[in-house]
Design a protein around this nucleic acid. Structure first.
Lengths: 99, 99
DNA sequence: TAAAAGTACTTTGAATTACAAAGTTAATTA
DNA sequence: TAATTAACTTTGTAATTCAAAGTACTTTTA
């Protein structure tokens, strides 16, 4: 039997990106500061993981305002949601096998 | 709400180590070559991930023979099994929340 | 109106991690 | 005795991760 490593998505091989994605699966969108607080990260670290997810086309970025303050929000794309679900499904199957 | 990153075990933040552990959850023990074939890895890469898991005390190493050939086998420790289960349980809860 | 603070980054640099490839040791089989 | 096998270790490079500092722009506060 072979274990197909490629079924586990490399993008999600990181706890922070898993955290971002699960936030964005439950919430239609989250702001930079929401995510920063949600995950207790520094600006730079958060920004770099968001960039990674954006480059993978798993999230989209929308720049807007709340009142007069800038407000950037992030949402999971359909592709991102599917990829994340697939990743979790594969892990879920692992779990089942182990029981 | 906060996402507790520490509930996701850093040791399992890697596909190869997840693969090794799930192999060792299902099989009482596996040889170096079993694992090498199971995961399609080079010797060096496999050895380094095994070392990581051993240092984390999640697996044990037993050096023996099959006939006259050397045969090293690896097994998950109780601690390793628990840690891996906990990791997967936390992911499982994530999955549930997303449904 | 000048200074301080907030938002959302980017840049820099260091530390850690991952990985392939080659080398090693010791036994074994052709 | 030469080649093969097992299980590594070493070496070196590339990629990843992360904090901290810097930036640009706007807004609020003193």
């Amino acid at each position: 039997m072979k274990f197909d490593l490629d079924k586990l998505n490399k993008v999600f091989d990181n706890r922070i990106r898993v955290g971002i994605m699960s936030g964005l699966m439950v919430n239609e969108s989250l702001s930079f500061n929401d995510l920063k607080e949600y995950l207790s990260l520094t600006d730079g670290n958060l920004a770099s993981h968001l960039k990674n997810l954006e480059e993978s086309q798993y999230i989209t970025v929308t720049k807007g305002f709340i009142g007069r303050k800038t407000n950037t929000t992030y949402s999971a794309t359909e592709e991102g949601k599917m990829a994340f679900k697939q990743h979790l499904t594969y892990l879920e199957n692992l779990i089942k096998e182990l029981k």
